[in-house]
Design a protein around this nucleic acid. Structure first.
Length: 508
RNA sequence: GCCCCGUUGGUCUAGUGGUCAGGACGUCCGGUUCUCAUCCGGAAGAUCACCGGUUCGAAUCCGGUACGGGGUACCA
């Protein structure tokens, strides 16, 4: 028992008893920061063979929409971060939408109140502000001063008659609260800095500091991984867990916490949903692979080994250890994110690589959503040509569009044409047409014919010889390997484009 | 103001008393080459925030300072 290496993480739990939750508020799109939190919670749960619960914190009705919820679920599915309990999958601890749990909160608050662990506070906003300001200038902490902790019947009656509507506050214990953070170690808060805080608004609306621990307790969550912004409120939540245990709500266990560092953007601020590059949608549209994005995000605060940074999610699950997570904030580096993604692109099975390009080519009208067998054959043949020269899937449009585009819609990039189709390009194209006219249409034969004609015949350097041909048939200065491209394009289209390009050149 | 967290090359990190402080991204140079990539080779880049202490010995332990971040709500 005592020699289990993970005792400081698991305590008396068996690994499979571990229950984590990811609790997004569906106010919009998932950000890379949210995703990193979800990833670590997921990896933690999967590592121990425990459960991951998805709970939706949608108590703020004004900011939540069904669409945003659906988008959140779809996003997690796309990423491959699956959950064992929650929306769309059910579970024994539901409902998993906080908006459907309001009666539960009301019931818990009533119990807290009657047990004396919470009390009504009738202070007005102005009174609070005034006293807070006074405490502050006196160099004291600025939390609630406990004014209404022990009101008499008469005082309460008086307040009620004044028409005051009370909030509900938790009675904080008068002792230090110490806990062992899974990523930061022991953290201590002194009681003088922990004022009684509000659980329920005067209008009856339950607040986050109430519903979050109540749900964690009821759902028997054993480990909480969340952003470091919640660290300062942790002692207050711990006090609530203890109160809940006392009144018999939930499993009676206070979860262990791990506060993850922020993912920072430019400058020194937390990457927010308003920052470009922060939203998952951008990465999906740009054609990042879920495994690539996740791999990069994992690197922000965690590492699998000293000399390794490309790995699969299966490997991450195997190796993940919350104790090895860094406590310091990390800056999101778009370049490295793309580089890690590119590494995963090259690791992909070619068949799979081809499949994943289809939606991107289809989006730009290069291919139908369900390509024909012929189109699939071309795509399959093109994969080896482009797999190692793409960083994201969306680049497939620029890279392969020329193979699929309708002949009438094919155009030359003006910049490429202007720079390459000049001078003796006309002669090069003319010679190319002649050389390819009746050659066997294979990569080898095409290359031989063009080398003989352009390099040997016209005495051009390969670079100058093939440049015009490349622009003529692909429309771009950068393309997959030329001879293979010609073969894939086919004799008819190739010759047609070469002639078109030649005739577009001004007469000498 | 008060409380909490953090600080290793430009960036992400390895590292828990003895290492030439390792790797990756990025950058630069070179090779391969039909473009672009890939791949291969090489280079530059770190007083381990600062000051003091403990120690034969400190990036690693202790204290302080500075700087950065977060919290301090009837937001989440």
């Amino acid at each position: 028992m005592t020699d289990r290496p993970d005792d400081d993480v698991l305590g008396d739990l068996e690994p499979t008893q571990v229950r984590l939750r990811f609790a997004p508020s569906p106010t919009g799109l998932l950000t890379v920061g949210n995703i990193r939190t979800a990833l670590f919670a997921w990896a933690f749960a999967r590592h121990y063979g425990g459960k991951l619960v998805l709970r939706i914190e949608d108590t703020d009705a004004a900011r939540n929409t069904p669409e945003a919820l659906q988008y959140t679920l779809d996003s997690l599915r796309w990423l491959g971060l699956d959950w064992d309990e929650g929306p769309e999958v059910g579970g024994d601890y539901g409902p998993y939408l906080q908006s459907e749990r309001m009666d539960i909160y009301a019931d818990v608050v009533a119990k807290l109140l009657s047990a004396g662990r919470a009390y009504h506070c009738y202070c007005s906003q102005e009174e609070l502000d005034q006293r807070r300001e006074a405490a502050r200038t006196a160099g004291q902490h600025s939390g609630y001063d406990g004014h209404c902790r022990n009101l008499t019947e008469e005082q309460v009656t008086a307040y009620v008659e004044e028409g005051r509507r009370p909030v509900v506050r938790l009675r904080m214990p008068d002792r230090p609260i110490v806990f062992e953070d899974l990523v930061r170690g022991e953290i201590t808060f002194l009681p003088e800095n922990l004022g009684d805080y509000v659980l329920v608004r005067a209008n009856g609306h339950p607040l986050y500091p109430l519903v979050n621990p109540v749900d964690d307790a009821l759902m028997e969550i054993t480990h909480v991984l969340r952003g470091e912004d919640l660290l300062p409120s942790t002692p207050r939540q711990i006090a609530l867990y203890e109160a809940l245990a006392e009144i018999g709500v939930g499993g009676g266990r206070t979860p262990r916490f791990g506060h993850l560092p922020f993912v920072m953007g430019e400058g020194n601020k937390k990457l927010s949903k308003r920052d470009p590059g922060s939203g998952l949608g951008e990465y999906m549209e740009r054609g990042f692979l879920p495994e690539g994005l996740l791999n990069y995000l994992a690197l922000l605060g965690w590492s699998i080994a000293e000399d390794r940074d490309v790995f699969t999610m299966a490997e991450m699950v195997e190796a993940f250890d919350i104790r090895k997570v860094n406590a310091n904030a990390a800056r999101f580096d778009p370049k490295k994110c793309e580089a890690i993604n590119a590494a995963h692109m090259r690791l992909l099975d070619p068949e799979e690589f081809g499949r994943r390009m289809i939606p991107f080519l289809a989006k730009d009208g290069m291919l139908p959503a369900e390509p024909s067998d012929d189109q699939l054959a071309v795509l399959r043949a093109a994969v080896p040509l482009v797999q190692e020269r793409m960083n994201t899937l969306s680049e497939s449009v620029d890279m392969l569009g020329f193979l699929f585009v309708d002949e009438t819609a094919f155009t030359l990039d003006p910049d490429a044409a202007g720079k390459v189709l000049t001078g003796d390009a006309g002669a090069v194209l003319e010679a190319s047409v002649k050389a390819l006219g009746d050659v066997e249409w294979t990569t080898e034969a095409i290359e031989a014919a063009l080398r003989t004609s352009l390099v040997d015949g016209l005495g051009l350097k390969p670079k100058n010889a093939f440049g015009p041909v490349r622009v003529a048939i692909s429309g771009r200065r950068v393309s997959p390997p030329l001879f293979e491209s010609l073969e894939l394009l086919g004799r008819e289209k190739s010759l047609h484009r070469l002639e078109q390009a030649r005739s577009s050149l001004p007469a000498e």
